[in-house]
């Protein structure tokens, strides 16, 4: 079943509330890159991976690998909303004995599909999953989320060179291009531009979209289902900290949790947006 774009937007905005609460409770973490990718993660997980509690362990399931492991609060929020992780378990994020490690750990929580957090490695793993699906002739799709700073890793370029060789048209990579990394704006730290031209030169099927526009996300993901022999790369332009006005585009929110006061402000803004959307729907 496909959810409506309005539903997806509502889910994502509700989960932004979860992300802020989780990070506030944890006292650390990465709000900027979690809020920038939640719209895409929501679109992929609900309407393309189609994850449910029932199919989470099915060997023939579509898979989503969060290569930018620091964005995992977005994935945990989705898994909780789907009932795969208990809602109150979200508040154990980053705490001792929690399955919700600061970066995803597959041996603790198999539903994250793989352990990531050391940047540049998840794409190779997703590539291997796509190769296995091809080898077995299974019509599975492998989705992988990478960050713009992550694109600076050498291993990413190994995989970007390799996936077209193996004609992995079942591999769909989404770049959460939020323009910021810990040490500053991506273009200043180590520019990745012209990223779409680089990917086309590497023989990928490339699309460039607004990563907060659910219609564009849906259209791009639909186009990426084609089996023309090329792996798919979606450059999703996003805003770091999207949804919380005082975090938006501010590098400093890459890797720190909001304090009590900031959490109140962030939740007020996010809840107002969710409530306003609910009124419009009625």
């Amino acid at each position: 079943m496909k959810y409506s774009l309005q539903d997806l937007e509502r889910f994502a905005n509700e989960m932004r509330i979860d992300i802020i609460k989780m990070l506030h409770e944890a006292g650390s973490g990465h709000p900027g890159g979690s809020l920038s990718c939640i719209d895409a993660v929501t679109s992929i997980m609900y309407n393309y991976v189609g994850r449910t509690a029932q199919n989470a362990a099915d060997p023939d399931r579509h898979r989503f690998v969060m290569s930018k492991g620091h964005g995992v609060p977005a994935l945990y929020a989705v898994l909780a909303r789907m009932g795969i992780v208990a809602q109150d378990e979200l508040m154990t994020l980053r705490k001792i004995n929690s399955r919700l490690q600061g970066h995803p750990v597959v041996t603790a929580l198999p539903e994250v599909e793989f352990s990531t957090g050391s940047l540049g490695q998840g794409l190779s793993v997703a590539q291997g999953m796509a190769m296995a699906a091809k080898l077995d002739g299974k019509p599975l799709k492998i989705y992988c989320m990478i960050g713009d700073g992550e694109l600076q890793e050498g291993q990413i370029w190994e995989s970007l060179m390799s996936a077209p060789k193996f004609m992995l048209d079942n591999l769909i990579v989404l770049l959460d291009y939020n323009k910021g990394q810990i040490d500053g704006p991506t273009r200043e730290v180590m520019d990745i531009e012209p990223v779409d031209e680089k990917l086309r030169a590497f023989n990928w099927d490339v699309q460039v979209i607004d990563g907060h526009d659910f219609k564009q996300l849906d259209e791009a993901l639909t186009k990426a289902q084609n089996t023309g022999g090329k792996p798919h790369f979606i450059v999703a332009h996003t805003v770091k900290g999207k949804g919380v006005s005082f975090m938006e585009g501010v590098i400093d929110w890459h890797g720190k949790a909001p304090n009590d006061e900031q959490t109140v402000d962030a939740l007020k803004e996010l809840e107002a947006r969710v409530n306003a959307a609910a009124e419009v729907a009625q």
């Binding site: 291997g128 296995a132 080898l135 291993q155 390799s162």
Partner: peptide
């Protein structure tokens, strides 16, 4: 699978395949 001179990508791709039962 001939991975070219890409040891890191080989490590990751093999890990991904292993998760698929290989």
């Amino acid at each position: 699978f001939e991975m070219g001179i890409q040891e890191q990508n080989m490590i990751g791709a093999a890990a991904g395949m292993a998760t698929m039962g290989k």
